[in-house]
Design a protein around this nucleic acid. Sequence first.
DNA 1: GAAGTGGATATACC
DNA 2: ACTGGTATATCCACTTC
Length: 817
Amino acid sequence: MKIQCTPIDYDYFDFQGKNYAKIIGRDDKGKKVCLIDSCDVFLWAILKDNIGEKKVKEISEKIRKIKLSEKGRASEVIKTEIHNKKYLGKNVTAIKILITNHKDAHSFAEKIDFKEIDKRREFDLPYITRYILEKKLKPLQWYEIEGEILNNSPEFGGIDNKLDVNICLKVEKIKEIEKEIYQPKILSYDIETDEFDIGKGHIVMISLVGENFKKVITWKEKSNKEFVEHVKDESAMLEKCVEYIKDYNPDILVGYFSDGFDLPYLRARAEKNHIKFNIGADDSQPTFTRGRLTTGKIKGIVHIDLFRFIRVTYGQYLQSETLSLNEVALELLGEKKNNWIHKHSSKINGGEWDTYYEYNLQDALLTYKLMQKLWPDFYEFTNVIQEPLFDISRDSLSTQVENYIIHHSGQYNEIIEKRPYNTDIEERRSEEKYEGAFVFQPIPGLYDNVVFFDFTSMYGSVIVTYNLSKSTYLEKKEKDSLKVEMGKETVYFSKEPGFFSLMLQEIIEKRKLFKKEYNENPNPILKARSNAFKLLANAAYGYQGFFGARYYCLKAAAATAALARKSIKETIEVIEKNNNKIIYSDTDSIAFLQGNKTEKDIMDLLKKINETLPGIMELDLEGFYKRGIWVSRRNGDIGAKKKYALIDINDKIKIRGFETVRRDWCNLARETQNKVLDLILKNGDEKKAVELVKEVIEKIKKRDIDLNKLIIKTQLKKSIEEYKSEGPHVTIAKKMREQGKPVNIGMLIEYYIAESDGKKKSLIRERAKLTDEPGKYDIEYYLKNQILPAVENIFEVFNVDVNSLIEKKKQTKLGEF
DNA sequence: GAAGTGGATATACC
DNA sequence: ACTGGTATATCCACTTC
């Protein structure tokens, strides 16, 4: 039997003491297939230097005879092979130890403690990773698979009988083929419940959205809406839901925050109703792994929680202030959630139910559309990193970088470094922080004609150019090595290119290539591809300084920062020597005055600098700006770093660091500051802006401001009990909890500051009120703690004291009484 | 009980 | 605990006089 198919979900099982991969995929006709396959499982024993050939063979033989019997499983070494490998860039002799069961790799590693053995490695690779590496059956690519059909076969304990797939194949031959990018079958889901705590209240309705498929299943009010299906009770609703999912037979079941809410809730209610939520391809129920975050897994279907993917890998490129479904959908799709204020189902009137059903359906619809929109990104990440979609959608950035390394180490014949033990992690975490980026101390002022240069992928380029990594780090000075001075300390790196730098070089080159291709031919796939490489390039530096990394090397991270500092300072000097005044610089960018130079002069300067830059270091023109403003810090009179605003030739404004871009300031302060910056940058003076601020002050005093504009939003970053210092948002979170409102870690807590009602209340938190709590906003607070701080330093640039505006008015006002 | 200071906290920049 | 360091600013908690 020969089929064409693409692997989607990877799982594995044990049969008669051996491991087998169980892969769910689709064939070219859209049928669900299951592939059963196995691969060599092994670990490496790396020998110490200068062990004679004979001795190596002897040890190899000794290892060959090791047997284990653990957890009722007899396991043994199948064979051993002697190889010339590389480990951290050095040539080593290593014994490849093939064993019967992957789960015993750790135990074997512990048993191999001969004195001639230096290190044991690759006992900690997950089986699926090992399988993909060995068989090169990469997720979402296309293959021609030859194999034996399992049909009612007793082999593997009759596994094919238990699986809801069209074909079950025992793999014999794998051949990669070219085909179009796979478009998965997606089903999205969303639930509405009476209570927020998992499983506490009833599930009122479940919505499902797929291609030409929209459903809301409910046991509450009947409806004439064609998409609403009414059943008799919660239990029947859950069973109907299972039926629809099985019927639709998706590759991907997607929700928004579904790891933390929808899926565990469904599972909990099924349990309460004594039924099975058996949506797995083998009729199993979803399972949950309890880490810091709950993760919901379904056999044979890739469960994706879009929120998680967006938060770790995608969020940094979004403008949205929260990563709520509403905001993300608005930004990426231009669509919103429907309006609905959550109520217990007992408090909903008959006529309101249709609104509720539509609201629920819209959420699933948005989730479905978002999944489609982000599919190119999921696909490209999977393609580049080569781990299964399930992991790609949840892994942290460091893990993504690490998996990229693992799946590309073969090119370098490298034995993969081990994961750090807890003792290693403890030690790493206790290491002193190193000096990071250079930030130029700006002088407050309004500047005309500002030019911005920046380095492309600066840290990545530094790592590649200077070859900075764990494998190239030298314990002591060697001849022809690179010397890096970092304050008191001096470190050395080999000039022999290391595999980490080579890999990163490839990543940066591909990023440049795909970016260029995208610019010539803009399409979502090229954008996603370029983005995937950009993300890896940017994360590689942080990875080397991350305590959990296999290829952790704090010295390399410190040297990267040191050489980046050196590089930017030297570039600053060149620009200064060209008679251009430096205004600002942060990490990889430099702002300076164009002065009397033409744009061509500036481009020539850029070209000249690039000619002298080493390796793959590259300086780019970020832009020409008509005007820019830098202000002073609120306490102290020096210029504030990381805070400036620019206007370009097309009157487009770019704001960095100001309150305008901070979500923990009330909208009135943000809007006012934004308008002030706009007026100043456009007009080149402050006069109109002063008038504007006066008006706002008057409005506040007259209580003419809508409360919505005064709401302050602060994120609850940990549980209420963990706070040592109780800020206003924590007090409000406490109140919300008392009122039975949902309070979760990560939530934005909303409140406003009210006038104290009689008793003296010196603390701000004592005056903080919930948005729906009646009260009068505190005029003084909003003037002195919101509006003034937001504009004071901007006007200071023009020697205008806004403080006096408030005080003066206040006196006249007092005089009136 | 006001004033000053350091710590805790949140958020942004790159 | 789940990439790094640099920086601003608020509000609380505590000390001091």
